[in-house]
């Protein structure tokens, strides 16, 4: 390649600018090829009210589910503690091992994700 054939930095940035301009023109044309109307404020207000109602309902359901599970677990723990203490100790040990294992797994997974990025 001769010296004259090598594009200068200025030329290259010019063609890049032209390319970006042409790309933006295409996006503008795309925007214009679709028409839609923006709903009025009352539509959004209604949507927000409905969504908040849903959120409150879901929160109540989650709270109920959490309370039920908590009561079942506590009942089992107390029963085990008073009726069969060795089962209680075994459950405690298994819980600690699972927690440590899960934390280690998550930590390893997080490190892997950072390396990939």
């Amino acid at each position: 390649m001769t010296k004259d054939n090598i594009p200068s930095e200025k030329q290259s940035s010019k063609t890049e600018a032209e390319f970006v301009q042409s790309m933006n023109h295409s996006f503008e044309q795309l925007e214009q090829s679709f028409s839609f109307t923006t709903p009025d404020v009352s539509f959004f207000e209604q949507k927000i009210a409905e969504q908040k109602k849903q959120i409150r309902k879901k929160w109540r359901q989650d709270l109920l589910l959490f309370s039920t599970i908590a009561i079942i677990i506590l009942s089992l723990m107390f029963t085990a503690f008073f009726q069969q203490p060795y089962v209680f100790v075994l459950l405690q040990v298994m819980t600690v091992i699972s927690l440590v294992g899960y934390t280690g797994y998550e930590f390893k997974k997080g490190k892997g994700r950072v390396r990939h990025e």
């Binding site: 795309l30 923006t38 404020v41 959004f44």
Partner: peptide
Amino acid sequence: DEYALAQLFQQNYSFLVHYLIKLTYSL
């Protein structure tokens, strides 16, 4: 304030849909 949030949505709806059109190529 639900009215304030609705105002924000209404002001930005067109911008949001136009952006999403460029991502999806579909209205």
